[in-house]
Amino acid sequence: MTLPAPSRVGRPQAAASNEYDNGPFTFRPATKDGHNASVAIQGPSGSGKTWTGLCVASGLAEGQRFAVIDTERGAAALYVNDLSASFDTLPMHRYDPRDLQKALAAAAQRRYPVVMVDSLSHFWSGTDGTLDQVENAKSKYGGNKFAGWKDGTPIQNAMIEALMSYPGHVVVTMRSYTDWVLEKGQPVNKGTRVEQRRGIEFEFGVAAEMDKSNQLRFIKSRCPAFRGREFDRPDGARDIAKPYLDWLRDGAKPIDPAVWINAANSPEATPDSLLALYREVEAASALATPLLHPDTGKPISLGDRIKERGTALKAASAA
């Protein structure tokens, strides 16, 4: 039996996206350029978090119309005549975290300077929220609910990335409840706990909690003006939005993400220009910026859109 002559098989080429994903580690001078406000307000029902959130959003919008993604059966709209600012609402009736990504992309396309989510809790524990996604996924893993987090965690994380990368200011409200724990057979009050994934408040630049007497206490703040502060019935625009904006803008230059989006979709774009654009957006921590795909209308991140176009143009030039 004669064996065929050996043939040389070349290594499979690396996926085109690797040139995007495996970029150099480059240190740059630190700046506040392009940073936006992100505020989380948590509290029990009746604590005033919706009203306070609206006031913060109106202050951040500085006279411009802003957006409210509403899961609270129109609660925000009830204040439309009490607020000296205009806003549009998007009622949500199912709370798949991926739907929040779609809503954020739609808001970004409309170029709202501020988006408020009232409330973020529904995308955790509401119908089709993250907890439902985990429950539904467990059947894939023999009924193992813990394994269901293999599906639930990426969905939750992608939602938070889109929220934190919104090309404007972000305000969210979250429900909280008293956390009782049995110790030696006796219920012990462990304080309040937010109705969202544990620790989510620390994703935001500023996080505060309110009680039923409308007292606000900051529990986390990157802005020095709020550390250790408390407000009784706060004026969100004056007490929170203004000092936060003043701090963010101190020595910073604004960045308009629309410039990046236009460059990503430009007919003059080349594989090299798109790779350079990707590096610029990456350096600004803006790859997860949500937008609607210009062809399909479906949500896509800015980073994925740049990568998609760059890969397609490179393949076309090699054909």
Rank of each mutant, 00 (worst) to 15 (best):
A37I: 04
I160G: 08
N136S: 13
R94K: 14
V172N: 04
S317F: 11
V188N: 06
R249C: 12
A67Q: 13
R279T: 09
S17L: 12
A67Y: 13
E195M: 14
D250F: 05
T52F: 03
R233H: 14
K212W: 13
A225Y: 10
Y278C: 07
T296C: 09
K253C: 11
N18Y: 13
A137I: 07
D239E: 01
D272I: 13
L100R: 04
A30N: 09
E203V: 10
S119L: 04
G46M: 00
P113I: 03
D132T: 12
L216N: 03
V9N: 11
K49V: 05
F226P: 04
R110A: 14
Q156E: 14
W247P: 07
V114I: 04
K220G: 09
L292G: 01
L120Q: 02
G205V: 08
S213P: 08
E72G: 06
D272P: 01
P243E: 00
D256H: 07
Q13N: 12
M174R: 11
A16Y: 11
R249F: 09
Y141A: 07
F146I: 13
R217E: 06
R28S: 12
G74N: 03
T153R: 15
A103F: 01
R28L: 15
S317V: 12
K150D: 05
V114T: 07
L120D: 01
G236A: 00
N214Q: 15
P267F: 10
P257K: 01
A137N: 05
L292R: 02
I261K: 06
E268T: 15
M174L: 12
L275R: 09
R197A: 12
P29H: 11
A237V: 06
A315R: 00
R279I: 09
R198H: 13
L60S: 00
P154T: 06
L90K: 12
N157Y: 10
K138S: 10
S176F: 07
A107C: 13
L275M: 10
G34S: 00
E203I: 07
Q215M: 13
K212H: 14
N262M: 13
Y244A: 04
S301E: 01
A105T: 05
A108T: 06
V171W: 02
A76H: 02
G199C: 08
I155N: 08
G43W: 00
T50N: 00
S176L: 06
P4E: 14
G310H: 00
P187C: 08
Q42A: 15
I219R: 03
A207M: 03
Q156K: 13
E183V: 15
R222S: 09
S121F: 00
F204Q: 04
S119A: 02
A85R: 02
F27Y: 14
I69Q: 01
D235Q: 05
P299N: 00
K184E: 13
A105Q: 02
P91C: 09
Q133S: 12
D239T: 05
P91F: 09
A263P: 05
D246Y: 08
L287H: 01
D239Q: 04
R279W: 07
D272K: 09
I255P: 03
F218Q: 01
A319W: 09
K212M: 15
R198M: 11
K212Y: 13
S86A: 12
T296D: 01
N18D: 14
M159L: 07
D272W: 11
D211S: 07
P167M: 05
R238L: 11
D304M: 10
T270V: 12
A315G: 06
V181M: 10
A57I: 00
E203H: 14
V9C: 13
Y112F: 10
